[in-house]
Design a binder for these strands. Structure first.
Length: 638
RNA sequence: GCCGAUGUGGCUCAGGGGUAGAGCAGCUGAUUCGUAAUCAGCAGGUCGUCGGUUCGAAUCCGACCAUCGGCUCCA
């Protein structure tokens, strides 16, 4: 007998050799039905795994995150089987589970089309019904290489060759299909029902553009049909909040063939921008930041000096002025360096926090452009903090707190990454390590969870990145804090210390929004275009019932405008329901219906965005108080 | 930049070798109507661009550009 400790702490004795499936069945029928795999002492295993000695055991059910991941991975095998049946000669790359689904990278003479996805899906359904079991087999490295080499699976051979010496190599077979795989898998293909193949994409083998591009097929799979439908519905919903769609509908900005990646901001989009910038300036002044503005075009020699010419040239736009080479700035830092050097600095001046809402241009690859989320010119809410080495931790913490303060106000949830030294970078290993550790310490002092992003730092230093999600769950880097020992060196920045000698300051580059453009995109998606009153381009729309109420409406509008409330009058000769509909469509926070009753009593009938039949009657003074309070609170009150 | 798809009036989309259509928006007129679309009329497109095939191309072919979904890269 072996002793099994379950997740709830209870202990069961079972016969040696009892499988995880048997164990699940002995606990309850429901559990047995929902079980897809198990964990023995924390390691994920197939349900068919026998229990040989005392262990902590957990049953993984299909409705758990881990269970779904196993289902998704198993479904990618099923898809690979279907593809090889339909398109013989296709060889396989990798086919992992991902968030909400799975993909498989394949290499085939055949160029897959969206119609093929339907065929593959049909074949998968047919194969799933065969109720084939996923069978594990452990084999030696040589056997594995021979097996896959015989079948022309060169990518699998490459993977096996790269496995560590002591790795256990296993294969899984379902039906007539065998794949190299660590497992675990679901017991049988019959569990795979609620799935759909989603789209096709190219993907470089092993993620390197030096390698061949394979064809990637994405699919989604869920425990049950209702979950799949729910997911597909949510996807459709998410598309409705896409900032590109809302940007057009709400007349915020536009993009044109004449300037790919160079957005045009419309009057309403400018109001958003200006609100964000005003708030930014206020918050930064409070924290002792100064604001500067540096030129957009600077000489090549400057960029050579800063290292950008060596490390960033491919992304820079260049031009000639009077036969001299110049470049449009891709970053604001060199301008900031020049400003620092302009005066002799004392240790008493430090930390010196110099902010700049700087417009930068970067040549992004054409295929990477994406609405306002990835553009070729954008405004960074930048700042450079010059400090004593002893001030690093405190300053970095200050920025972390500032970012958190901003994101909380807008209601964003974010995650943090620490990006370390990239291949193409400058400086010694020691300074990089020192800088990286300083950032780590600050993160740990704040108790923030973070993930390490190896090799993703800037060429001059490591960075802390703050990431936000868009409507489809894709994450975008926004805030960043970059520690830099290189620029002060390159530009020979100094301060006079207590000892009367020159010393080298340390510098931090940091942004909070990241890019105003990107932030507006994410805000638009976050609020689904229904901006809080503070940000709404039009805060109040006054809807007179008929011509004779126009005078009252205009007087009201003037009064609101006087108070800095963005109000307008819809004076078209349309029915009130028509005007209401449009005010709602434009997601204007307050629609005020004014007719005889209101004009006589100096009141308004307030209809809030998103509230069905409302029409609460308020005196004009009450309404003004409500709007002002809501603007000040930065969120929706009623 | 790479892979695949797409490109028809301001917007959403139909059509598809014989010379372009709808709805919404716009304009004009009528309607003065109290909480999500009043009615009628008018105007608007060298069908992304450039080439080719053809008696004839928006439609077929090619190149380019842009957009979308990914990959790579990044705020």
């Amino acid at each position: 007998m072996v002793k099994v400790t379950l997740k709830d702490g209870s202990i069961r004795e079972v016969e040696q050799g009892t499988t995880l499936a048997d164990l699940a069945a002995s606990i309850s029928r429901g559990l047995a039905k929902a079980a897809v795999a198990g964990k023995i002492n924390g390691e994920a295993r197939d349900l068919s795994t026998p229990l040989e000695k005392d262990a902590e055991v957990e049953i993984i059910t299909i409705d758990s995150e881990e269970g779904l991941e196993i289902l998704r991975h198993s479904t990618s095998h099923l898809m690979a089987e279907a593809i090889q049946k339909l398109y013989p000669g296709t060889i396989l790359g990798i086919g992992p589970a991902i968030e909400n689904g799975f993909y498989y990278d394949v290499d085939s003479e055949h160029v897959f089309t969206p119609e093929d996805l339907e065929k593959i899906e049909a074949e998968m359904r047919r194969l799933a019904k065969e109720n084939n079991t996923y069978q594990r087999r452990e084999i030696s490295r040589d056997e594995a290489i021979e097996f896959f080499a015989e079948r022309g699976e060169k990518y699998k051979v490459e993977i096996i060759e790269d496995l560590p010496e002591d790795a256990v190599i296993s294969m899984y077979t379902q039906g007539e299909f065998t794949d190299l795989c660590a497992g675990p898998h679901i017991p049988s293909t019959k569990t795979i029902k609620a799935f759909k193949l989603m789209n096709l994409a190219g993907a470089y083998w092993r993620g390197s553009e030096k390698n061949k591009m394979l064809q990637r097929i994405y699919g989604t799979v869920w425990a049950k049909k209702a979950d799949l439908d729910d997911y597909l519905f949510k996807l459709e919903e998410a598309k409705r909040r896409d900032h590109r769609k809302l940007g057009l509908e709400l007349d915020l900005f536009s993009l044109h063939d004449e300037g790919p990646g160079f957005p045009f901001f419309h009057p309403k989009g400018m109001i958003l921008r200006n609100e964000l910038e005003d708030f930014w300036r206020k918050e930064h002044r409070k924290r002792g930041y100064h604001e500067i503005k540096t030129p957009i075009i600077l000489s090549r020699t400057l960029w050579e000096n800063s290292g950008h010419w060596d490390h960033y040239k491919d992304n820079m736009y260049t031009t000639k002025i009077d036969d001299e080479d110049f470049a449009v700035k891709p970053m604001n830092c060199p301008g900031g360096m020049i400003m620092y050097k302009q005066q002799l600095r004392s240790y008493r001046d430090l930390p010196l926090r110099i902010g700049e809402l700087g417009l930068v241009h970067r040549h992004e690859l054409s295929g990477a452009l994406h609405g306002l989320l990835r553009v070729r010119n954008f405004t960074q809410d930048d700042a450079h903090i010059f400090m004593l080495p002893s001030q690093i931790k405190e300053e970095v913490i200050g920025v972390i707190e500032l970012v958190d303060h901003f994101y909380k106000i807008f209601g964003f949830e974010y995650h943090v990454e620490l990006s370390t030294r990239p291949e193409d970078s400058m400086g010694s290993d020691e300074t990089w390590e020192m800088a990286t550790n300083a950032l780590k310490e600050a993160l740990e002092a704040k108790g923030l969870e973070y993930k390490i992003n190896p090799g993703d730092g800037a060429f001059y230093g490591p960075k802390i990145d703050f990431h936000l999600k868009d409507c489809l769950g894709r994450t975008w880097q926004c805030g960043t804090i970059q520690l830099d020992f290189q620029m002060p060196e390159k530009f020979d920045l100094t301060y006079i210390g207590e000892d009367g000698q020159k010393h080298r300051p340390v510098m931090v580059h940091r942004v909070v929004y990241g890019s105003i453009e990107r932030y507006i995109a994410l805000l638009t998606e976050h609020y689904a275009g229904a901006f809080p009153t503070r940000l709404a381009p039009v805060q109040v729309r006054i809807l007179p019932i008929s011509d004779r109420h126009e005078e009252y409406a205009q007087a009201l509008r003037e009064r609101l405008n006087e108070l800095d409330i963005r109000a307008e009058v819809d004076d078209r000769r349309e029915k009130i329901s028509y005007k209401i509909r449009e005010a709602q469509t434009l997601k204007i926070p307050f629609a005020l219906v004014v007719g005889d009753q209101e004009a006589e009593t100096n009141s308004v009938a307030v209809r809030r965005y998103g509230q069905g039949n409302a029409g609460e009657k308020l005196s004009v003074d009450e309404f003004i108080a409500l709007v002002k309070e809501e603007i000040a609170s930065k969120k929706r009150l009623v």
